[in-house]
Simulated assay, not measured.
Amino acid sequence: MRLATWNVNSIRARVARTVEFAVREHIDVLAMQEIKCKPEQFPYGPFEDAGYHVVAHGLSQWNGVAIASREPIDDVELSFPGMPGFAKGHEGPDAPLEARAIGATIGGVRVWSLYVPNGRSLDDPHYVYKLDWLSALAEHTRSELAANPDLALALVGDFNIAPTDADNGDPTVIEGASTHVSAPERAAFADLEAAGLADVVRPLVPTGFTYWDYKQLRFPRNEGMRIDFVLGSHALADAVTGAAIHRDERKGEIPSDHVPVVVDLDLAGSDDDDVPMIFG
C-alpha cells in the first residue's frame, strides 16, 4: 500500500493537481486536509474517474478532511471519542465539533486524516483548544492500542507542530512567542509518540520541510516548516519500506502551501528483517 497525506488547501481549487499527483505516484490511499467544502460540494467525479472511492467530512468553507482510496473504505468515523469542539465565545464540553478528523479502515489499516487546530497565538482560546484536542487524541490512541496492540494504525495529516528546532526554518516563528514551536505543543506531540506511535517518515527522510508560507518568498528561500506527519503504531511502522516528501509539489501553478508526504507499506511482509527499524 502506498499511503499519502496532503493538506490541499481547498480541494475544489486544486482537484486536477491532486488527482494527477495521486495517479502519477500510484497512491493507493490519500488523506487530505483543509478541503474547505461540505461533502456535497466535494469534486468526487475526477477521483472516481481515476478509480478512487472518497469519503469527506466538511461543515463549511473552512477546515474539512477527506480520504480517497483505490480499495474499499470501511468503518468511517467523523470524529474520535473525546474530541473537543470549538466556537468563538463558546466554552465548555458542548462546544460544536469542527471537521478536523475522519477515520476509516482500508486494507487492514486504520487511517485517520487529521487537521490539528492551528492555535493562532499563545494567548488565544484556540491554543488551549489545540492542546485539549491533542490530549484527547493521545488518550484515544492509548485506548485503541491497549485494546488491539497489533492494530496497524496511521495518524496522518497536518499537525501544526514543528517537533524539533530543525523542523522550523521560518524566521518569523519564534519559540516563546509563536505557536507551532511552544514547549506545550511539542510535549503534546511527544505524548502522541508515547501513546504508542512513531514518526515513520523521519528515519528514512531525516530532513525536509512540508510547508512554506505563501508570503515573503518563504519557498524560494526554503524558510519552511515540517508539520505534516505519518505517525504509525508498531504494526504499521514494521510494514514501512519507503518514504518521501514531495517538495516539488510546492512549485507550479496554484500550489498548496503544503506538500504531500508518502509512505510505502508492505503489510504482508512486515516481519521481513530488511525493513527499516522505526521504533528503537
Rank of each mutant, 00 (worst) to 15 (best):
G176K: 01
A152S: 13
T141N: 11
A198N: 06
V156C: 15
D150G: 12
E175R: 13
A190M: 08
G169C: 14
A154N: 15
A183P: 01
A190F: 04
D158V: 07
L155K: 02
A146K: 10
P171K: 11
T164Y: 01
A195Q: 12
A187W: 01
A162C: 13
R202H: 10
R142E: 15
A198G: 15
S178Q: 12
S143Y: 10
D170A: 08
A194G: 13
G157F: 12
A147K: 12
D150F: 06
V156H: 08
A198M: 14
G176H: 03
T172F: 09
R202L: 13
S182T: 06
A146E: 11
N148C: 11
E185G: 00
G196F: 00
R142W: 10
L153Q: 05
L151W: 00
T179K: 01
A195H: 10
A198K: 04
E144W: 06
I174M: 07
A136D: 05
A166P: 01
A154Y: 07
A198S: 13
H140Q: 10
S178G: 13
T164F: 00
A152G: 09
A154F: 09
P149G: 10
A194T: 11
A183V: 11
P163K: 02
S178P: 04
H140M: 07
P149I: 09
A183D: 09
L151Y: 00
S178R: 10
D158F: 03
D158Q: 08
V156I: 15
T141Y: 04
L145V: 08
S178F: 12
V200Y: 04
V200F: 07
G169W: 12
A147C: 06
T141M: 10
V156E: 03
I174H: 06
A183F: 01
L192V: 00
N168C: 15
V181A: 05
V200Q: 03
N148R: 15
L192Y: 05
T172A: 13
G176T: 03
L155E: 07
T179E: 01
A166L: 10
D167M: 03
V201W: 01
A188W: 00
T164D: 15
I161M: 03
E185H: 00
T164S: 14
R202G: 07
T164A: 14
S178N: 13
E139F: 02
A187G: 04
S143W: 11
A136L: 07
G176Q: 03
A147H: 10
A183S: 08
D150C: 06
T179N: 03
E144Q: 15
N148G: 08
F159D: 02
R186E: 06
V201M: 11
E144M: 14
F159K: 01
I161S: 01
G157Q: 08
R142T: 15
L197N: 02
H180N: 09
T164N: 05
N148D: 14
N148T: 14
N148V: 09
V201H: 03
I161Y: 00
A136G: 09
A198F: 00
H180W: 13
G196C: 09
L155G: 03
A177E: 15
A166V: 03
A152H: 07
G169Y: 10
A138P: 04
H180C: 12
A194E: 14
A146D: 11
D170W: 00
E185A: 00
V200A: 04
T141V: 15
L137P: 05
H140L: 04
E175S: 12
L137F: 14
A152Q: 11
A190N: 13
L145T: 10
P149A: 08
A136H: 02
A138D: 02
